[in-house]
Write a protein that binds this DNA or RNA. Structure first.
Lengths: 229, 229
DNA sequence: TAGTGGTCTAGACCACTGA
DNA sequence: CAGTGGTCTAGACCACTAC
């Protein structure tokens, strides 16, 4: 069996974990490792590159590769579409449009999205249910100047998230997680008491520098997001 | 100038963004793209592999490469050390050890960490302050069987997180985010009222299949974590 | 079973940057 | 300026899997 980049990567990780390669220490260069492992330099290179991408190791030309003093820990969370999230749990998904209005953008939102005063936005409120129980409350603003078709879209059956994803293949976004206390309206929708702690995701989406949408997703009580790294 | 994998990747992204490559559509295979771009297959391969890693595209042997119907959105959060997190905000960091006990592992924890009944764990409670204000409450369990030195460590000045990072260069972990309601003790420590919604991070860490530590980090009221993608 | 992606190799040139 | 990583190439073999 030939030596693969995964073999090299795993062995290097072991050496780091076992302390043979100490944090801050200089690792052998690619040629030397290639000889040691009996493989091509490209193989070592890919192993090292992945370690660098994962924040385990730090690479600099001429200076060589070092084990990071404190590894940059990164957690990756996938951002699923609610329907798929619920289906993945084996529950039945149901969607409901609660409210739809077109209104002048409030000041707090105008600042956030860098909009002109007096501009109108589409404001949607929706609920997502899992097996008939409230799962997620969606409070969304969409910019019709960026996505004109949104004013004709029918959101009574299909949620705005799925509609937007189908319309716009691509975008950049900022996402934040926080804990909030339920107001009476949220409590009613999500079947909990006012004041209960709820997990909230807030996402702002841009396409080529122009604001598309801001959405606040508030989950039923007890929700948690999890990932491994 | 020769064609680089970045050129290929950027061009493919453009084609997807502009709609020339529609979601769900089958892309040409690597050989064909290599000819089209006038480069080696390995170059195309790397470009496509990165698109796949980023969740833009889906690859299957024999079936070919397709543009994902809805891109898998992934958010990366960096997991900083508290002290660096606070320092990055320009605030002064202070640490305090609140409590330290060695006790038999409670059942709920034993199940989580796959430990033997009756095993003893080090239980630490700490506080982290920013400019003198409560910032984060840390409730941590450490397994002395995996990290024997921990029983001799002095946590009165250095937080257990930093101590562990220095001891164990590497580990796998599971992390989760949730919203909780403050009990009286948390409220006292964090300077809020009992019942307030607080943001919590829970992290379980393993080294080669053996549990190292479980930690619950609860932040002061109003905390949020943010990232872009 | 045939077609696709996944990977390795050996060699080459280049780009960055620390000594 | 010399050493390191970064990348490309052309060819090869392999592994998976849809058909």
């Amino acid at each position: 069996m030939t030596v693969t980049f995964k073999d090299v990567k795993a062995d290097l990780l072991d050496q780091i974990a076992l302390g043979a390669l100490r944090p801050g220490s200089l690792m052998p260069n690619e040629m030397e490792l290639a000889e040691r492992y009996g493989c091509a330099r490209a193989t070592v290179s890919r192993a090292m590159r992945e370690l660098a991408d994962e924040g385990i190791v730090e690479r600099k030309r001429k200076a060589g590769t070092r084990v990071r003093l404190s590894p940059i820990r990164q957690a990756r969370f996938s951002i699923p579409i609610v329907r798929e999230e619920i289906a993945a749990q084996g529950a039945e998904y149901r969607y409901a449009l609660v409210d739809r209005t077109v209104q002048v953008v409030p000041d707090w939102l105008r600042g956030r999205l860098d909009l002109t005063p007096g501009q109108k936005m589409l404001h949607l409120t929706c609920m997502h249910y899992a097996d008939g129980m409230p799962y997620q409350h969606e409070d969304r603003w969409i910019n019709p100047e960026t996505v004109p078709a949104v004013l004709e879209a029918d959101f009574s059956a299909l949620g705005p998230n799925e509609w937007l994803v189908a319309q716009l293949p691509f975008s950049t976004a900022e996402i934040s997680f926080s804990a909030i206390e339920a107001d009476q309206e949220l409590a009613d929708h999500l079947g909990c008491a006012a004041g209960n702690a709820l997990f909230r995701t807030e996402r702002t989406t841009w396409l080529q520098g122009r604001a598309i949408t801001l959405v606040r997703l508030t989950y039923r009580r007890g929700h948690r997001v999890t990932t491994q790294y």
